[in-house]
Design a protein around this nucleic acid. Structure first.
Lengths: 156, 156
DNA sequence: CGAGTTTTGGAATATCCTGCCAATATAATT
DNA sequence: AATTATATTGGCAGGATATTCCAAAACTCG
């Protein structure tokens, strides 16, 4: 899908405020509401806009501990990976699971929990018990310097 | 701030769809529109809801390469850290910057770029040139198994 | 049990969404 | 350069939605 200047402007604004009204959006990009709405719908249809989310504050919810968990697997077979991934998807505290290269680990998980007790429970009772997990290394997040969801929109 | 069952239900639904209309939201949680809207506003005021974002698809934007960059600093002084953090904030390709413990690195960055050429340019021309950066280690993301923004809402 | 506080539901007004159509702009062709 | 074809826009109208206000209901605490 080819994006023109209007589309890119829409994407930038909606990445910043996903609840902008169509009128406000139309004003800011310099179009009238109807073509503006049509473009937004087209971007949604094309899958460029994948969805809209409310972003919550972890601290306000009492989730003050964020950790990165590096996981090593015993064997690199599809069955092992599928089992691990299914197990990880079922854990709500795990926000991210990346299959990575360039480290000794196979996966990096990002987890958010209340405190160290909860972290210990997560790690020992749930993560390390997933079949195939041999190595685990934890990194704790001291501070979130940058935490954006906004992708750089090409062509500016 | 104390959250009751209605609040938690609101948070769960809005984390999933940030553009739910207030009417629809009210229906689903079993309240009429006015108290529902008042609760949403209160959650926004209290900072529990930090904002609303449109989530874009990186591939659809031609951003097919995601990498994790581990950074080591020469000295752990506040000035060094502040300088680094300001520089990192100014790079739109960097979506996340975490100050971490438990690794040899000090920071972990998450970057999204078009391809390897763009990654090389980012790393060599911009990241490694930030004063104080001594060590850099790249991990490439082969697959994003889980990629949620929804925090687990306590008390279910 | 009763006074005070909080929260809810419904009505009224203002705002916004959204599909339709004519008008305009853009692109292609000869 | 003129003309046709195509795509895109702007405005309007009907319907849906947001938002405020107030009375009624629910809840709390002495």
């Amino acid at each position: 899908m080819q994006l023109d200047r209007y589309d890119r402007h829409i994407l930038r604004l909606l990445q910043d405020d996903g609840r902008l009204s169509n009128q406000e959006l139309a004003d800011r990009i310099g179009l009238s509401p109807s073509p503006c709405l049509r473009r937004v719908r087209a971007l949604e249809e094309a899958g460029v806009i994948a969805g809209y989310r409310a972003m919550l504050d972890a601290k306000a919810l009492g989730l003050s501990l964020m950790a990165l968990i590096h996981i090593s697997m015993d064997q690199h077979t599809p069955e092992r990976f599928e089992g691990f991934e299914a197990a990880v998807r079922a854990i709500p505290e795990i926000l991210e699971c990346l299959l990575i290269t360039g480290q000794s680990a196979d996966y990096q998980l990002k987890a958010v929990v209340r405190d160290m007790d909860a972290y210990q429970e997560l790690l020992l009772d749930r993560v390390t018990r997933i079949p195939g997990v041999t190595g685990v290394h934890s990194s704790f997040v001291l501070r979130r310097v940058v935490d954006k969801t906004a992708l750089p929109v090409p062509g500016d």
